[in-house]
Amino acid sequence: MTDTYKDSLTAPNETPEEREYEFRAHIGAIWTGGRLAIGMATFLYASEAFAYFYLRTSNNSNLWRLPGQLAPLYYGWTVLICLLLMAGLANYGHRRLKKGYTNDFLVAGWTGVAAGLIALFFQIWELVVLPFYPGSSGYASTFIGFVVMNIMTIVFATYWMETTTTRAMRLRKELGGTNPELSSAYPARSFRANVASMSYYMGFVAIVSIMFFLMFYVA
């Protein structure tokens, strides 16, 4: 293979205009990427919902759901409330950040992370206290599938929230000054775009949690 690096390692000779152009592409990528992540997660959850309704309507061997079979309701509530809290805090933090209250963003971020961790704990622990066997009915199976999927979503959402929050703290250290998160420096702009995408994604998580809560714990 020819060595493509020989002369180009040092400098791409970017002009400021080019840098700005690429940077805008980068911001656009965060915007598109966040929405696309929602699209992917939608298909993921849609296939789970499809399984739920498919098994429910086909009710094979009359075993869609045993009489009285219900996942632990209080665990469900806890996870739901934590996730809603997390989504709310993400949105709140984002709005406060836009208004310039960066400390509020940090507090909201860390609280949201804590809520996410609590949700994660209860979501996992719920599997331990299940009052039914995984294979006892279609409902039981789809519930287990949903829990596993939800664990992945919570991990991802909490991770995203945590990294944006730590990123805000790093920005303060790196850039210095008052409210460096709101400056026009590249890292700060990229950070704000990221927060926007994150809070959007959290909105999606909230909607999905409510929908699936209704499906599994209410309906």
Binding site: L55, G135, T142
Partner: peptide, 16 residues
């Protein structure tokens, strides 16, 4: 974990 997504006899469906 022995769920029954694809097992007709336990409330699943092979069509799924």
């Amino acid at each position: 974990v022995l769920t029954s997504f694809y097992v007709n006899e336990h409330g699943g469906s092979s069509y799924l």
